[in-house]
C-alpha cells in the first residue's frame, strides 16, 4: 500500500501550497485514474509518491517505508516505477534495446534472465522492429511506449504514470489499458494521470484534484454522474454521459 498522510507540498520560493493536506491510500491490484485541470497538482502529487519530491509536511509510506528515511529510498524506487509525461526526460541510452536493459543491468540481474525479460518487453510493447534504433529517431508515441517498457520491465509493485497516453495513437492507448489491467491481475497497483474521461471510465477508482486538494474520489461511474460538478473542476465527462444528459435519459454510460 502507498499511504499519504496529510501530505503538503510547497515549491521553494512559492507562497502557496501546491498540494494541501492530502491523505490517500493506494492499494495493489487497483487502477486509479488521477484527473484535474492543468496546475491542480497532479504531477506534484505523484512525484511525492515515490519520494522524488519530499513532501514539505506529512508523510508518504510505501509498504510501510517512509520516504523521509534516506536508507529506504532505493527500496521505494524499486517498488514504485514512474514514467514521466515527456518521455525525453527519462530516456538515457543510445538504442531501444539498451534503454530497456538499463534498469535491469543496474539491479545486477543475471544476463540470461535479463535477455529474456528485455526480449519479452520488446515484444509486449511492439518495439521489436526498432530494437537497434536510436531513441531520438522514434516518433513521440514510440518514445512514450519505450519509456513505459523500460519501467515495466523492472516489474515494480506500483506503477505511477504521468499522462502515459498523451502521445499514443488510439491503438496504443487501447493496448496500454489492456496492459495495465493485465499487471493489475498480477498484483500491481497502478496510478495514472489522464485527461481522457473515457480512459478513466475503465479504472477502479477516479480521483479529481482541484488546487492541490482532493475534490472527488470514488468509482468513475458515480463521479461522472455529477456532470456539473466535474465540469466545474475543469474536467471533461465521457461523451456518452454528455449525450445521455442531452437526450434526457440520465441513464448510465458504459
Amino acid at each position: 500500500m502507498i499511504e499519504l498522510n496529510h501530505v503538503t507540498y510547497r515549491y521553494r520560493d512559492d507562497r502557496e501550497d501546491v498540494i494541501h493536506d492530502v491523505s490517500l491510500q493506494f492499494h495493489r491490484s487497483q487502477i486509479t485514474a488521477l484527473m484535474g485541470a492543468n496546475g491542480s497538482g497532479k504531477t506534484t502529487l505523484i512525484r511525492c509518491m515515490n519520494g522524488l519530491l519530499k513532501c514539505t509536511s506529512g508523510d508518504v509510506l510505501v509498504d510501510g517505508l517512509s520516504v523521509h528515511d534516506a536508507e529506504h529510498l532505493i527500496e521505494i524506487r524499486r517498488k514504485v516505477g514512474m514514467v514521466f509525461q515527456n518521455p525525453d526526460n527519462q530516456i538515457v541510452t543510445t538504442t531501444v534495446e539498451r534503454e530497456i536493459a538499463f534498469g535491469l543491468e543496474n539491479l545486477g540481474i543475471e544476463p540470461e534472465l535479463m535477455r529474456r525479460k528485455v526480449a519479452e518487453a520488446l515484444r509486449q510493447f511492439h518495439l521489436e522492429p526498432m530494437q537497434d534504433t536510436a531513441p531520438h529517431l522514434l516518433s513521440g508515441g514510440e518514445r512514450q511506449r519505450l519509456a513505459l517498457a523500460a519501467v515495466c520491465v523492472m516489474s515494480p509493485d506500483y506503477l505511477i504514470l504521468d499522462e502515459p497516453t498523451a502521445l499514443l495513437d488510439p491503438r496504443g492507448r487501447a493496448e496500454f489499458l489492456a496492459y495495465i489491467s493485465q499487471v493489475r491481475k498480477s498484483g500491481t497497483g497502478v496510478v495514472f494521470v489522464t485527461q481522457s474521461a473515457e480512459e478513466a471510465c475503465g479504472c477502479d477508482r477516479l480521483i479529481i484534484l482541484d488546487s492541490g486538494r482532493i475534490a472527488m474520489d470514488g468509482p468513475p461511474a458515480g463521479i461522472f454522474r455529477e456532470v456539473e460538478q466535474v465540469h466545474r473542476l475543469g474536467v471533461q465527462v465521457p461523451v456518452a454521459v454528455e449525450l445521455s444528459v442531452l437526450f434526457g435519459s440520465g441513464s448510465d454510460a458504459d
Partner: peptide, 12 residues
C-alpha cells in the same frame, strides 16, 4: 503537431 497533447479540457 499535437497541439493539445497534455492539455486539460479547457486548455484543449
Amino acid at each position: 503537431d499535437e497541439p493539445t497533447a497534455g492539455l486539460d479540457w479547457r486548455g484543449t
